[in-house]
């Protein structure tokens, strides 16, 4: 079922829940991996995903189809993840703990990390990027999204996204060089 059919089903009286469950079934996995690559931890990604889906459910009556459903849901999930990361940094700041160190420990101890040592080091480097650069890098590098698509989701110009990706790419190379 495509997005238009799902939305039409959602607008039918008494079928909202069923339609939304289909939307969740269709998109939850993709959204989860997007969030997981931004946060690193499964528990955090799970919380963010569920909150994003519940928010999408609450906001769906106001969805005017000015963007695609998937883009819209992606935007909600990305914003939710960015808010979460900001809060985590603030929490770490007020508890006088080193956020970067916390993230590195989390990667080391993650029971749901299946990559090799190179991937672990690479993940640590990605987690050192500023949040917004990490979002752009993840979308482009892992999800191989087009800049136009990322621009639609993040509401940033293609030029700014290209610059952001370039900076992130350079930073990761520098971090990796230092870590060797």
């Amino acid at each position: 079922m495509d997005d238009n059919e799902l939305l039409a089903l959602y607008r039918e009286q008494g079928r909202e829940n069923y339609a939304f469950n289909l939307i969740v079934e269709k998109y939850s996995e993709r959204l989860y991996w997007h969030i997981r690559k931004l946060t690193g931890s499964h528990e955090d990604a799970n919380d963010i995903l569920q909150n994003s889906l519940v928010k999408a459910w609450g906001a769906l009556p106001q969805f005017r189809e000015e963007s695609r459903l998937y883009t819209w849901m992606y935007r909600i999930a990305t914003n939710e993840a960015l808010t979460f990361l900001k809060r985590s940094k603030l929490r770490a700041f007020f508890s006088l703990s080193d956020y970067t160190k916390q993230v590195e420990n989390q990667i080391e101890a993650d029971p749901f990390f299946n990559g090799d040592e190179a991937q672990r080091i690479f993940r640590k480097a990605i987690m050192k990027l500023p949040d917004k650069q990490r979002v752009v890098f993840t979308m482009r590098y892992y999800e191989e999204m087009k800049y136009e698509e990322i621009s639609e989701i993040l509401g940033t110009s293609v030029g700014a996204l290209k610059a952001s990706y370039h900076h992130a790419y350079q930073k990761i190379q520098d971090i990796l060089r230092e870590s060797v």
């Binding site: 991996w33 190179a118 690479f122 190379q173 060089r177």
Partner: peptide
């Protein structure tokens, strides 16, 4: 640590 290494693009999470 070549960023363009396809192995690094693989999803390391489960």
């Amino acid at each position: 640590f070549d960023i363009d290494n396809p192995k690094l693009r693989e999803n390391p999470f489960t």
